[in-house]
Amino acid sequence: MDFIYGDDTGLVIDWTQMPTYNTIMSIAAGAGLILLVLLGRALQRDKAFRAEGWALSAGVLGFILTLTGAHMTLTWPFAKYFPFDNIIFGETSLGFGVLLLAASFYLWKRGGRLADSEDRAAEAAATAKPLGIFIFGLGLALFGIAAAGVIFQLFAAPPEEPVSGAFAQWPWIEAAFMSGLFALIGVGSVLFPFALNSFSSTRPISGVAKTMGVVWTVAGVVFLLFGALNFYTHIGLIVNTMG
């Protein structure tokens, strides 16, 4: 890493060259994954389904991820110190954010018809089916990120970062942790188009859909909590490296 170590101050980072906002991105991504799982359950089970609340939630999260993901993808704010993070966090957040915005638009415009459908889940699945190609591709990309994280031991925090920095001398720990999260989301993403084939309000949920729901829920909860923790750890890193 292109860090600067002062004679007396230790690690010094020029934060004017690295605007950091993957904290809110992590929370939004985790909440978005959980939202999709809960939306699927509501479509299948909730007899009093109301689309407006789901549309608003998807819109809020999609806006955050699209805005921050697009900025990171197009401007590479981490280029000086962590250039690979612009791809890992920026491009994946952009893709997920646009998908959530599309879901928000659909639910807002077609929510009434969806709620009145005899099989809401099958109706939604038929609409989402063409997006399965892109989501499957994102899943493969997430496997690539997970492999790169392990092979190149990415994601390791410097010792100056609170909590995460305690494992700085064992970079494989955080590499395995973050790579495992990306791999979990990847599993759910590659299963998505296959889960749609049997998604229905009138039939029991398939094993494929259950597996997708479990891995997205686990990864979503961890990403949300990890993002919340990073509000402390990243602020601490900034304080400890301002020079």
Rank of each mutant, 00 (worst) to 15 (best):
T217M: 01
L225P: 00
G188M: 04
A28D: 12
A29Q: 04
D119I: 10
A51P: 00
I87G: 07
T127H: 14
P77M: 01
A31T: 04
V221I: 15
F155N: 00
K80W: 01
L196D: 05
T68G: 01
L154T: 04
T211S: 04
E118Y: 06
A31N: 10
Y232E: 12
D8N: 15
D2Q: 13
K47V: 09
T68L: 12
H234Q: 07
V37K: 01
K210A: 03
T92I: 12
K210S: 07
A228P: 02
H71I: 14
I145Y: 03
P193W: 00
Q17K: 09
R45K: 11
F96I: 14
T202M: 11
V208N: 12
W15G: 03
V60G: 08
A102P: 05
L33A: 14
T127I: 13
I88A: 05
D8I: 10
A115K: 02
T66C: 03
Y21G: 00
S164E: 06
D119L: 09
N230C: 01
S179C: 04
R50W: 00
A48F: 02
M212N: 14
M1E: 15
A128H: 11
A122P: 03
V163T: 07
A79T: 06
I185M: 10
W172Y: 08
A28P: 08
P130R: 13
V239G: 06
A124W: 14
S117M: 06
N230P: 01
E52N: 12
W108Y: 13
R41N: 08
A70V: 08
I34G: 03
L184H: 02
F96D: 02
D85M: 05
M72D: 10
N240D: 12
G149R: 01
A31P: 08
Q44A: 12
A157V: 01
V221G: 08
V218Q: 11
P130K: 11
T217H: 01
F49D: 00
G112L: 09
V239W: 14
G236D: 10
L142E: 04
D14N: 06
A115W: 01
P19S: 10
R113C: 05
A28L: 03
L100P: 08
A55C: 11
P19C: 06
L74M: 15
V12C: 09
Q169H: 10
V37W: 02
A125H: 06
T92H: 07
N240A: 15
F136P: 12
L114A: 09
S179K: 06
T66F: 02
G186S: 09
K80S: 11
K210F: 06
L99N: 11
F155E: 00
A125C: 11
M25D: 02
T202R: 13
F96R: 03
G220A: 08
F134C: 11
L67T: 08
D119A: 10
V37Q: 05
L74P: 06
A48L: 03
I173Y: 12
G112V: 04
G144L: 04
V12M: 11
S200L: 10
G10H: 15
F63A: 14
T75G: 03
L107C: 08
F192D: 09
I34H: 02
S93C: 12
G95Y: 01
G144I: 05
S198F: 09
G137V: 07
I133D: 01
G149Q: 05
S117N: 13
P77W: 01
V163G: 03
T23C: 05
L39H: 04
I205E: 13
A156C: 05
G95A: 14
F78Q: 04
S93H: 13
